[in-house]
Structures are given as structure tokens and as C-alpha cells.
Amino acid sequence: MAGVTIEELGLKFVKVCMKLYWGSWWYPLLFAIGLLCTLIWGRKKSSRIFIGYTAFLFLTVYNPIIVKYVIARLDFENEYYRFIWILPVIPAIAYYGVTFVSAFKKKWLKAAAVLAVLGVLIVSGNPLDKVVKNFALAENIYKVPDELIEICEILHENMSNPDGRPRVVFDASLNNVVRQYDAQLRLTIDRNASIYRAGSTVAGEFNENSRRYKRQKAILDVIDYQIYDHPKKFRNALGKSKTKFVVVLKNEELQAFLLKNGCEQIAETESYNIFRYKGLKKT
């Protein structure tokens, strides 16, 4: 987790990560209550699996001593929060909720139990507007913007057989999303390079002096930050990375820069311009 280190927190690292991850949600408490009920009254093997699974996790990846002396050596503290995902809080709460409702025989009691469970979940959770900003319903079954699908279709139409799986530069608005939709496109800009250039520490240790990062930075400076001071570095970066296409939000100044530096516009959507990089003609 960003800003949380084992070196600084020591044995408190796991506790702090859990607190940051769950925030003001009370679901872990519901999970703990469910485990306690399972220990006291649970007879089904299907419910006891949560006991064994949770005990194993707290003896291993949630064990402060193991985390301090093993995870730290593996240099995994920035990614440690992913271990919290495997704690079966949500599946267990769903199971306990259904078990509670099923315990009643009469329909009106079941209905009342459903309302009670829903009420507890609502009160103990977080309103969506506090978790997700600018929330909008998915535009399609792929859970990506419709324009991205249109852009990918255009790119495939303009690929020649020798291109194989061409490298494509997408600006920040699409670069991380396209990975969810089209695996045939190879991205020039790595996720970590993008967030590191943006000033994030989540990328962990990053070799900013490597040739690979310098090339990506030269491209990011132009497409995401509209810094046009080094056009030759930009062209070299596209050429050395074997980039074939550039996709950016419409911007007249950026469009003019790309056209002057070896890119030709091949298509556009409502919000994006799509370019093919051909390089400058030698004179």
C-alpha cells in the first residue's frame, strides 16, 4: 500500500493495512460474528471451511511476524494489500445471510429476515458515492467505453499482416482500460511507467534511468502532459519501441504536433483521434 511501510510500522503493518483497506466498513465484524456462530452452532462442513481457511491466513500472510521478516525481504509490501482480497469476507457474509433467512419456515418470517439482512448490509457498508467517484453504469457487457471498442475495430482494420500484434500508444484515459478488452494490442506504455511519471509511489522502485523508461517518458510527456520541447526524443521513442499507432483525446495543439512528427491521422471517433506512426521522410 502506498505510504505504508514495514520498516516504519513493524508488527503493526498488517493491522494498519487492514484498517486502510476496509475503511469504515463493518463487514469484517459481520464476518467475525459469522465465524463465532459457526464455532458455536455450525455443524455443516460447508460452513466450517471458513474457519480453517481464515485460521490458515492468520497463521501465514496475516501473521505480523512472518510479514515483518519474510514479506519485507521479498519486497512485496506495496502489493501486500492483495493478500487482503483472499480473506473470504464477502462470500462468507452472503453464506451466513442465506443461512439465516433459510432458518425460518414461514414465508412472512423469511421476508422479514431478508429485509433485516439487507438493512444490516446497508447500514454496515459504505454508500457508493463515498467509494466510487463519477459513477456511471457500464456502457456495454465488456465494461469498457463504447468508443474503445470502436477504436479497437479501427485499429484492426488498419493493421497489415506484417504488423502481427502492433504496439499502440493510448493516452491516460484509455491506456489501463484497453488491457481489459483487446489482448491482441501490445501497449507501448506500461502501467507502472505511467503512474510513476504521474508521481505515484505505488509503482515501487523504478529505474528512471533505463532506456525503456526514458522512451516511455518521452512519449508520456507529449500525449499526457502536452510538453512539446523534445520532438526528436518523441520520434525516436516511437521508432525504437516499434509503435505503429497513437490514440489520443482530441486536442488541436497535440494533433498539430503529431502531424509534424511523423504521424498521419487515419480515423477519429467522437472524442479521439487515431494516428499511424510512419516517421519523417528522409530528405
Rank of each mutant, 00 (worst) to 15 (best):
Y81L: 13
G204T: 04
I40W: 00
V70Q: 06
V168T: 07
E264M: 12
C17Y: 03
Q184F: 15
G52M: 04
Y69Q: 07
L57S: 05
I86S: 03
E208V: 07
Y62A: 13
Y53M: 15
K133L: 13
T5A: 01
N175M: 12
F13L: 07
K260M: 13
A72L: 11
Y277N: 05
V114S: 07
T188L: 08
A198S: 11
R211T: 06
V89Y: 01
V114T: 05
N78H: 11
A113D: 02
K278D: 11
A267M: 00
F31G: 02
R191K: 13
T243C: 08
E270R: 11
R212N: 03
D163M: 10
G204R: 03
W41P: 03
E139K: 04
A113L: 05
A116V: 10
E208R: 09
A111V: 13
I151L: 03
K282P: 07
I40E: 05
I219N: 06
H230P: 05
G125T: 02
H156M: 08
D146F: 11
I90Y: 15
A94Q: 02
I149H: 08
W85F: 14
V61S: 10
A55S: 15
F76S: 14
A94S: 07
V16E: 15
E150F: 01
L36H: 11
Y69H: 13
F135W: 15
L155A: 00
L57N: 09
Y21T: 03
A111K: 12
F83D: 02
L30P: 05
L238Q: 02
K68V: 08
K217C: 00
L254K: 14
M1D: 07
A267T: 04
R276W: 06
E270T: 15
L137R: 10
F104K: 03
N273C: 15
A92L: 09
I219P: 06
T54V: 08
E77Q: 12
A2E: 13
E139V: 04
G125N: 00
R43Q: 14
K15L: 10
I66C: 09
K110Q: 14
A138L: 12
V14S: 03
I40N: 06
N236K: 09
G52E: 00
K233N: 11
G23F: 04
G34W: 02
L238R: 06
V61E: 08
A267G: 01
Y80N: 04
P91K: 02
E268W: 12
L57C: 13
Y196A: 12
A112N: 06
Y69L: 06
Y228V: 08
L220C: 04
Q184E: 15
K278I: 10
D75L: 10
W108R: 12
L30V: 07
F170W: 02
E147W: 01
I227N: 14
S47M: 09
F50R: 04
F13T: 02
I86Q: 07
T269C: 05
G42Q: 01
S47W: 03
P231G: 01
R276S: 15
V101K: 00
F58E: 01
K133I: 12
S271G: 08
L220S: 11
T269E: 05
Y277L: 01
P28S: 11
E208A: 05
R212S: 01
N261F: 04
Q216F: 01
I195Y: 05
Q216Y: 00
